[in-house]
Each structure stands twice: as C-alpha cells, then as structure tokens.
C-alpha cells in the first residue's frame, strides 16, 4: 500500500475508532449517572452480559488502535533522538498488542 493511502486509512480509522469509544464512554457514564455507584454483584452481572462484553471488547480494541496511531504520531514531534524514539515506538506497539490480547482474556477467558 502506498504511504499516502496508508496515512488516509489511519486518518479515517482514527476517527471511526474515536466515535466507537465515545459511544461506549457515553453508555458507561450514562449508566453510572443513572444507577449510581455499583456494588460487586451489580458490576459483575453487568459484565456477565454478552452484549455488554462485546461492546466493551469493541471499545477496548478501538482504544488500542486509536492509542497506537495517536502515540506514534505524537512521539516524533517531541523526541528527536532516534534510539529513544525507537524504544517509545516499540513500547507503543507492545502496549497496544498487550491491551488487545489482555482484554479478550479478561472478558472471555476462564476465571
């Protein structure tokens, strides 16, 4: 894929993921505002609901990608040392991958 087309895809996905995350944050903050602080049982039964699990997974995966693209764009504006930049980029990829895999484990793994 040409470099410019990759950037345009990133630009769009950055916005699509932003909308997905925003919808999820509105949902969660709305629930908290309406129902107040949950206790253990309410919290865990919310996350036992398959629809809510899938919404959470979608939001976390969107966040991992959104953060990956965002951080990769922000670092080189402030970090000019190539070695430090390489470390930050590697950290960013690892953290995004870890978040994506871990979220699947937390939501759908065995307890």
């Amino acid at each position: 894929m040409a470099a410019s087309s990759k950037v345009i895809t990133e630009w769009w996905l950055q916005r699509v993921t932003a909308v997905v995350i925003t919808a999820y944050v509105f949902l969660v903050l709305g629930l908290l505002m309406v129902k107040g602080t949950p206790n253990a049982m309410q919290w865990q039964s919310l996350f036992a609901n398959t629809g809510f699990k899938l919404a959470t997974l979608l939001a976390i995966l969107a966040t991992a990608y959104h953060g990956l693209v965002g951080a990769m764009h922000v670092w080189p504006d402030y970090v000019k040392n190539r070695a430090v930049l390489a470390v930050l980029n590697a950290y960013t990829w690892l953290a995004a991958a870890a978040v994506a895999l871990w979220s699947v484990y937390i939501l759908f793994g065995t307890k």
């Binding site: 991992a64 953060g67 951080a71 922000v74 953290a95 870890a98 978040v99 979220s103």
Partner: peptide, 13 residues
C-alpha cells in the same frame, strides 16, 4: 491527555 490515557490503559485493565 491522550498519552496519559494510553500509558495508564494497562493499569486500568
């Protein structure tokens, strides 16, 4: 805030 959220994401998880 974007960088802070990304860095804290693993702790939130």
């Amino acid at each position: 805030t974007g960088i802070a959220l990304f860095v804290c994401l693993l702790f939130l998880l």
